[in-house]
Design a protein around this nucleic acid. Sequence first.
DNA 1: CCTCACAACTGGTCCAACCAGTTGACAACT
DNA 2: AGTTGTCAACTGGTTGGACCAGTTGTGAGG
Lengths: 228, 228
Amino acid sequence: MPIAPVVRAAVSEVVFAALTDEILSGRLAPEEPLPSERELAEAFEVNRHAIREALKRLQQSGLVSISQGGRTRVLDWRGHAGLDTLVALATSGAVPSAKVVADLVEMRAALGIDAAVLCARRAKPEQLAVVVEAAHAYPETPGATADLTAVDLVFWTAVVDGADNLAYRLGLNTLAEGIAAIGHEHLAGLLEEYADRGRHLALAAAIEARDEDAARRLAGDLLLRHGA
Amino acid sequence: MPIAPVVRAAVSEVVFAALTDEILSGRLAPEEPLPSERELAEAFEVNRHAIREALKRLQQSGLVSISQGGRTRVLDWRGHAGLDTLVALATSGAVPSAKVVADLVEMRAALGIDAAVLCARRAKPEQLAVVVEAAHAYPETPGATADLTAVDLVFWTAVVDGADNLAYRLGLNTLAEGIAAIGHEHLAGLLEEYADRGRHLALAAAIEARDEDAARRLAGDLLLRHGA
DNA sequence: CCTCACAACTGGTCCAACCAGTTGACAACT
DNA sequence: AGTTGTCAACTGGTTGGACCAGTTGTGAGG
């Protein structure tokens, strides 16, 4: 048995995960009222405050609607949940996680291609330098998956920074977190992309040359291979 | 004075907003430790439980890092915050809200164009019908801004549903919520697009005909006019 | 100078009570 | 009968205080 840091999950965290799962899986249907906080506290055998912390987070995620006096109700996650809920969706069983991963990768491609173009158009010289440097970090010989993921994240972070768009920046955070959370088992298809040092260098060169068309084409070559 | 529902903000909600603002504006710098929960409770003159609910939400947003025993520390939002934080960023003053809106609209364009293409490729017949129907809802004569926003949301929801990508679906939720929250004052530039019944009908027709190239071009015509 | 134990923090959890809205049932009035 | 008003029994919102469980810095002892 490997020695690793003990996982300490706060009670409200467990409750949050359980209720999230219950909702995303559909066992708690939209419009359906949740049990009262007092009932939940009794059912989970925890204090009511822990339940409240979890419910507040569910509300922030757009999964429930809370109103004083009235009952807390389940919302339709397809219409109210944010992008950050996608990860939980993958582990809830409501949708095959392979489908979620594919969707995630597809969105990553759309944003990545656009970010590459915008980076070529708008990046400052020092940001261009960072992009080129990050591209050189891709190893010439294959290494560990985790390392490759980190290198890839640094590269695309540099590209998105150069694109000078905060929405892309924050969206990248969410996507990267999602990919990291889902784990590398489902991401075998990405390895080939991660390991492609040549194409990353070419893309960086195109961006540095401010060649938007080449950047779009090269980014597409890298990011679209999975779906097609 | 207009008669409208009384705004009732929960205490933890106020604390959450205040701390979010404090962090995004930079007055609380990354790595800097937050005051302890007890100190915050005293400063805000509320119970510690309310502080805790707010901190849990800040943690979920990726704005702080909480660890038992140690102090709660501020994280760098550029590297940890998710897409849903963008709205708060617009009102924090850290970045001109016009910039945030422009970035939001830019991302909306990238996703919208891609979604239109994917919808043309993958939508089921009944989903195509919904798209066409939604396009016909754009008014022939200009109406109220709020109505137009709602019509536009229905149309793009139909398109994204047809694209059959959950990440796009949830991302659209976040973007729509952001646009709604920021308010229509900053969105005058979108009105022209919202009112363009003809182009929406044309786009719907292209999607229905499964003409991906036309869909890409028409969606671009609609969504890219702002930046160019 | 190093080591280790302890005191003084930090966040995590619980209990118990009360405040503040919502809802539905039911009596009273028209 | 139909409407109105009242009230009890819910719901979530907030508070206080106590204690548990980790972390961290300090200072006595080696």
